[in-house]
Design a protein around this nucleic acid. Structure first.
Lengths: 211, 211
DNA sequence: GGCGTTATCTGAACGCTGTCAAGATGATCT
DNA sequence: AGATCATCTTGACAGCGTTCAGATAACGCC
């Protein structure tokens, strides 16, 4: 979340850790000026090196953006962990995951956009999603399992529930800021009430089994 | 869907209908070469005019893309109308809307991306969504109302249902092509079965009231 | 019909971009 | 100390969005 140190003045000829510095510079530009300003040359400028320097650490711009996206997914993993830790019951944890997901997207809009732009280009979520137990995906799956009672659900059921929840959260994350919804938000009592209402409506919290 | 005539050879100095031709050229490039190839200069080339010609019809590239997106939303309206017409019961209509929406995104991926990229920049869906009764949004709302029985739901309930369904469909549309889901798709019996399962799971068809 | 006005289109230019090849620099290893 | 090798810079290229002066022709008015 914060290897974002300012660019070093009086830098020696060899930077030392340019790769990390470039990713940090890219994230700084994303936060301060938005995705449109994120050119490879601007990143190099921000890091205080020449426009060609990044090519010694990344094959092309795309590869740099993938490193940025990777940090984004890790930050999302952390946000999900935190959201889950703050809630007491399984049901509350599920709610917290959904709301936390949307808040993450709202608070890091440019980063979130880079993350999904890369994913759409590859037609896949990052690989670690399926594997690392701390990944956001696995945390959603585990939280769904926590809430399961009675007969053990099939793997297919669990995966379906996880994917459905993820689609709902992503759709809401991309659209919850749209102006069309401001009236409804107020009618429901604010941003968070709106998010909870939509997520509840989508059955995110009432599936697989009971409470 | 098809004002996409080939570029006119031996064109006179004044084109006659360059504005329409430019939008058509842009859609042709989107379909054939994808969103990355959609430069203003490429559109002008495709239309057979100089790089500066578009500026007499559009303020900038963004305005051209908005015209393209506008045609995209109209095409989506038409797809929703068709999906609804092909189904008999209200419940089937709702299913058909969801599946049809995702298919539209799958069949016009570049166009769909332009549509939502513009929307995110404006933080709003197109204006006509709220107004024109043929708009995709109003068709979803009306189909939800069709299925309502018993006490009349409040406006808030209806709007919430509509938005929730839209978020679910959009999320699924953006992610259904991801490689992570291929195994589940096969396990469920193919693409459409997968889409139906996720949409059903999201309660898209079981809310507001009964059948 | 002829003429001026105006919309439309071209050509050339500017600064920006991503990328690459050739050369400068300096850390590391022997 | 000297050679090697990764790292960084300089300079270049094509392509981009955009602007501006000038060419072209359609249109309205006499």
């Amino acid at each position: 979340m914060d290897n974002l140190a300012a660019p070093a003045e009086n830098r020696p000829y060899h930077h030392g850790d340019l790769r990390r510095a470039l990713v940090a510079a890219a994230r700084r530009i994303l936060e301060n000026e938005g995705p449109a300003a994120l050119s490879l040359r601007a990143v190099a400028r921000e890091a205080g090196v020449s426009p060609a320097a990044p090519y010694h650490h990344f094959k092309d711009k795309n590869e740099l953006l993938e490193a940025v996206a990777h940090e984004g997914w890790e930050a999302l993993d952390a946000a999900m962990t935190k959201a889950r830790a703050d809630a007491k019951t399984p049901r509350e944890r599920m709610t917290a995951l959904g709301v936390g997901y949307v808040y993450f997207a709202r608070d890091n809009p440019a980063l979130y956009r880079v993350m999904y732009d890369r994913s759409r280009d590859k037609d896949a979520l990052p690989d670690h999603m399926n594997k690392s137990p701390d990944s956001a995906y696995c945390q959603v799956r585990d939280t769904i399992l926590e809430r399961t009672s009675g007969d053990a659900p099939t793997d297919i059921d669990v995966e379906l529930s996880t994917i459905a929840a993820w689609c709902a959260a992503h759709g809401l994350a991309e659209m919850s800021g749209f102006k069309q919804f401001t009236a409804l938000k107020e009618a429901l009592g604010g941003e968070e009430a709106f998010l909870r209402a939509v997520l509840e409506h989508l059955g995110m919290f009432a599936r697989v089994n009971a409470d």
